[in-house]
Design a protein around this nucleic acid. Sequence first.
RNA 1: CGGAGUGUAGCGCAGUCUGGUAGCGCACCUGGUUUGGGACCAGGGGGUCGAAGGUUCGAGUCCUUUCACUCCGACCA
Length: 522
Amino acid sequence: MRYSKLLIPTTKETPNDATLASHIYLIRGGFIQSVGGSGLYNFLPLGKKILDKVRAVVKEELDKAGCQEVSLSFVTPASLWQESGRLDKYGKELLRFKDRKNNDFILGPTHEEMMVNLVRQTVKSYKQLPLNVYQINLKFRDEIRPRFGLMRGREFLMKDAYSFHASTEDMQREFALMEETYKKIFLRLGLEFRVVEADSGAIGGSGSKEFMILADSGEDTIVVCDSCEYGANIEAAISKPKSYDANTEIKIITMKALYDDGESKIVHFAVPASIELQEVKACNAVNANDLVACDESATMTTLIVDSALKGLETLEADEKSYADISSVCEGDSCVHCEGTLRYTKGIEAGHIFQLGTQYSEPLACNFLDENGKSKPMVMGTYGIGVSRLLAGIIEQNHDDKGCIWTKESAPFELDIIVANAKDEAQSLLGENLYAKLHTVRHLDVLLDDRTKERFGPKMKDFELLGIPYALVIGKGLSEGKIELIHRKDMSKVEFTFDPETIGQFKYFDALAADIYKYIREN
RNA sequence: CGGAGUGUAGCGCAGUCUGGUAGCGCACCUGGUUUGGGACCAGGGGGUCGAAGGUUCGAGUCCUUUCACUCCGACCA
């Protein structure tokens, strides 16, 4: 494509609300445009192109794994959510509205209900199972505080897959297959990532794993082992139990636990004084929806003691129990291999869950087994934040000049920069190499043929856009030299030819072949 | 929802304290010069100053109300 014809509104100035590299460069590179409303973005031509490429990678790998793509209605009747019981539970993130007949609707933040509804109407027999259906569609979550551009928008593109099985074993087999499939997707996109054990949160279920893109700007803290594969979100991380003696100083934390039905109760947690309480673990230990800070209370009715202290403390309470509620610290030992655990930051870009029958039971998504007996289907659910992946790729691949897209995500494979588009020889070579590489060899080439820009801005735009290679046709031309620049490290390779042959079409083919070969082999 | 802040041209900002013709940089348009690292000269277009109400001869500026957005905390792909 020709730069002169494309809508690529790059800017020199940074938008004032952007702090994260991905946010800054996606806006400055003209990939996306803020809509003004918070957490809402338009995708401009280049952003859309990248989104489609990333989406294609996701689709290809899922299809290879036997998943089937569908597309669910974005607007969801509220009655379905009433059925699953989530309408009241989900809270303000769920955007609700009415149509002209005063019927209630929501914009889907996730689509378990819709997908279960699809399947329960069409699948009746064990012979039709297993089934894994997915869609890559918009989601809307009315986030309390959207921020960081595509990292946490209110409207975002997500791949959500749902699998349906006749047995837990078969669901677990699919869960493992999805884990492998996700790894392939993340590898193809050129991401450095880690699969970690996670807390299931609002989606529910057990045995969930998160796919974390490693980046300092990540919002999640993850615990990783330096000698084995073990990794876990800090919310779910465990370490080798530490030993304490009776003299260990103990601290007690008082919190208020909130429950579904609006009830709440004061709970006390006891952990070694040197260790932090892990709130998510603590919350799970009392089966609460949420824990909030509250004033200290001397009367202990409900007490949860960290299991590491079992038998060592002398605390008394009406209701006393033990649970793992302590935070894993850096330097702790791995439960699997004696290695040392350390913290790192990650961006949650994928999450896979073993759901069981949590949705199939209330929504009566049943099938008849070999004995003609009706049973709820066993489900798994698997998500990838597709638009978030774009942000993640840039968080991991950028420098102070701009984006550095990975091979499968780059908006173009090559940027042919004609340094001075009014120079006839330069322009001629640019046009002909473009024809040879793009039209004949099907390399995805951007021809920077702009006559109004000089060399400087063209280089700046190349750096900002993060195209893997630039071919610079400029001053060296009269000596038979053109340069290929690697965006990643800005290193240069020269291609030479006899300057006498400039203008003779047949020689372009050999040059184009050299360049093509070089790009494909590096 | 708690705390802090900001709304003035497409973007980034000044002007508000002390009321008196709405400005600057970038971007954009025209002409010319330039052409390997965000060029230069000359000319030009673009604003209900977030909104509503009030005070005043006169409001971007003062008063009241309201809306939106951003940043820091608790939730999420």
